[in-house]
């Protein structure tokens, strides 16, 4: 178990170093950092001075070491457009993105599992067919179109929900939350659905397929032969065995949800990291782009690592093979 954890940890660090190289290359080679920081009439001498203070004359490997060192302490330099430390900008916006991503994931899990279980157990009912149709639409409609459609329905036509922003937020330490006010909660509804819909269809398809697969297994047949109630078979045995892979996938998808939030945040002008990133791409604000890449990668790698470890805890078979492997 320890060897397994260690191996996974080394892999995770490897990926982070690779991402660090990409982020550093972006920062260093994609355009000249100095020219981004000065105005056109800055003299050559002044440019040289800035170049020196940034250490851009040092050997590349030294610069890379410095970049990684800083990144490890969450220092990503100064934004070209905001003239503020990138870290501050990201931290300010992180609660908005995380709250949105968590709400979207909960929405996706709850409805995805319910719809998936229903369409697996009642395969030929009209409701199951409706769910299948919804899943096809959820996969085919681009996220931003769904957002626009929801805004048109619930903001423009019905006027029930706000079309942009987080509503009123409450500050708790450095964290800001929209979960404690009515307007904050209302503002969360449409962005969460927009962001979660794709995951929901994914989870629904997965639950349905897994459940149908599990229902065909010998141990379900044996459970029936033991005279267990339908309820115990469906929800005790079949669902539990279905949920192991489903939770893994949903967990692994959480990183994607954060990345996909870029689109949702733009549609709803949600003040999160994604919106910051989109603006950075438009304005060629490389330090923010590089920092965002590092942050999202870190989240990805952490989740992958945690899910791998959790998986072995949930599934007893893996636990012993893993501990036997070393």
């Amino acid at each position: 178990m320890l060897a397994f954890t260690l191996r996974r940890a080394i892999q995770a660090v490897g990926v982070m170093v690779a991402v660090g190289i990409i982020a550093f290359s972006m920062f260093r080679f994609a355009g000249d950092p100095v020219s981004q920081m000065v105005s056109i009439d800055t003299s050559g001498a002044e440019r040289e001075a800035i170049r020196k203070t940034l250490g851009l004359d040092d050997p590349v490997i030294v610069q890379f070491g410095r970049y990684i060192n800083n990144a490890a302490r969450f220092r990503f330099g100064t934004s070209y457009q905001f003239r503020q430390p990138v870290t501050n900008l990201l931290m300010e916006r992180m609660p908005a993105t995380l709250e949105l991503a968590i709400c979207a994931t909960i929405f996706a899990m709850v409805f995805g599992i319910l719809m998936g279980v229903y369409s697996a157990l009642r395969r030929d009912t009209w409701l199951a067919h409706l769910f299948q149709a919804i899943s096809l639409i959820g996969i085919s409609l681009p996220t931003f179109l769904i957002g626009i459609l929801l805004i048109y329905l619930f903001s423009v036509t019905l006027g029930w929900l706000p079309s942009f922003g987080r509503g009123e937020v409450v500050r708790i330490g450095w964290w800001t939350t929209g979960l404690l006010t009515l307007s904050g909660l209302k503002a969360l509804i449409m962005p969460s659905i927009t962001l979660g819909l794709f995951q929901m269809t994914l989870i629904m398809r997965l639950v349905r397929a897994e459940m149908l697969e599990v229902m065909r297994t010998d141990y379900i047949r044996f459970a029936r032969a033991r005279g267990l109630t339908t309820r115990a078979i469906h929800f005790g045995h079949a669902l539990r065995n279905t949920l192991v892979p489903v939770i893994t996938v949903a967990g692994l998808q959480f990183g994607s949800v954060i990345a996909f939030a870029i689109i949702t945040e733009t549609v709803f002008q949600w003040p999160g990291m994604g919106l910051l990133f989109v603006q950075a791409v438009q304005n060629v604000d490389i330090p923010i782009m590089a920092a965002y890449l590092m942050m999202v990668s870190l989240i990805f790698v952490t989740i992958n690592f945690v899910v791998d470890i959790l998986y072995t805890i949930v599934d007893p078979r893996l636990r012993s093979t893993v501990s036997r492997a070393h």
């Binding site: 141990y219 459970a223 032969a225 005279g227 045995h237 065995n241």
Partner: peptide
């Protein structure tokens, strides 16, 4: 019939490796 299964008729299947739920 469910109440009969397991109570009045017991069944043993061919493959013991797959007859038991691995997670319980």
């Amino acid at each position: 019939m469910r109440r009969v299964r397991g109570k009045r008729i017991g069944m043993i299947f061919q493959d013991p490796l797959t007859s038991l739920n691995p997670l319980y």
